[in-house]
Nucleic acid binder design. Sequence first.
DNA 1: TCGGTAACTTCCTAACTAGTTGGTTGACAC
DNA 2: GTGTCAACCAACTAGTTAGGAAGTTACCGA
Lengths: 202, 202
Amino acid sequence: MIPAMSTDQLVDKVKPVVRDADATRARLLGAARREFAAFGIAGARVDRIAAEAASNKAQIYHYFGGKEQLFDAVFAAVVDEVVRELPLEVHDLPGYAARLAEYYERRPDVLRLVTWQRLERSTEPPAVAVKAIKPKIAEIAQAQADGRLSERYPADALLHAVMHIASLWAATSPDMAWTRKLPSVVARRRIVTQMVRDLLAG
Amino acid sequence: MIPAMSTDQLVDKVKPVVRDADATRARLLGAARREFAAFGIAGARVDRIAAEAASNKAQIYHYFGGKEQLFDAVFAAVVDEVVRELPLEVHDLPGYAARLAEYYERRPDVLRLVTWQRLERSTEPPAVAVKAIKPKIAEIAQAQADGRLSERYPADALLHAVMHIASLWAATSPDMAWTRKLPSVVARRRIVTQMVRDLLAG
DNA sequence: TCGGTAACTTCCTAACTAGTTGGTTGACAC
DNA sequence: GTGTCAACCAACTAGTTAGGAAGTTACCGA
């Protein structure tokens, strides 16, 4: 069994004494995020989410419409959060990779949710994510055109390579397995930074 | 809805007229592989697997013990297959990356199954995968010690970076989304090869 | 030919699940 | 006060699910 994930971002677990629709929505969203991160869409239980949020199922259907739509709401919130908290700095892709790697380690549920979205939800990339990533790619392409960034790789391939490298030590990495001892935090950051630098230097 | 995946490796769909335990086992395993690849463990339906294999549920419990054990059997078979079909060649990591990338594209279910194993099954890497990957890392470390390979990165980090880069265009990549047109097959292979070369050159 | 056994199947069920219904409660305006 | 409406909830439903029980069929050795 996989233990429930903790997100610990907002205090969305405390039920207020007064009636508060927004607070209830937030509590449901928080509980759903933990549940979906831990079990995915098919494995998530609507009852558990309602209980964890100290609410009930009817509220979920009232506020979000259904299980899958609830997941979509969670996913959109996560994408929004990542975009806000980690602005891409084109002039420092190695540093961006390092910060992203650190972020993934601090918030393991993010990568899990993204992975589940890919596996369980539709065949093509979600509009909300495409919208978030497109300007980043454009920014990189512009920097390449201006000669501020290596043109060794296409902008999109470069950005995705950076993201993959950042997730090297994340729990959902698509490779086979880690053998044993992880490198230290410092060593991990150094490796990630260096790899991206290598890609840019050529 | 996500369509069922096809594996098309063995003709494990045809039910023989005579009774044949091995053939039945193989049919169940094949059907389970398609089902699990498409829906994961929680989303998979034992009834569907049994029907697809032209058998019945009781046989699954007889041969494999249960749903999760059936998944483990599928996973072990996949790991075994990958190890056999893609021997690591330490002297040509860029080429290995390219071949791995091509393999992932040819068999999308492999990466899906591996990803689901990570998400839904236990917290630590599966023994069967660790056993498969350990000698590969040792081989790389040896080549580094002999001076045949760059010591720029620890052997395990290097191998995992290679694997991540190989999965750049795979459906389960843990990043956000692809924006537009994919590069051609040739271009993709060139990019993957080049990236690994960059990591080794430094 | 017959008995034993492995392979197979049908039928069942207890527990569970997403989604709904119909009604209750509290806050707030007037 | 009292009317109104949004917020909230317990109980229910209809369908599904993993797993198992109990019996049937084919094969094979003696």
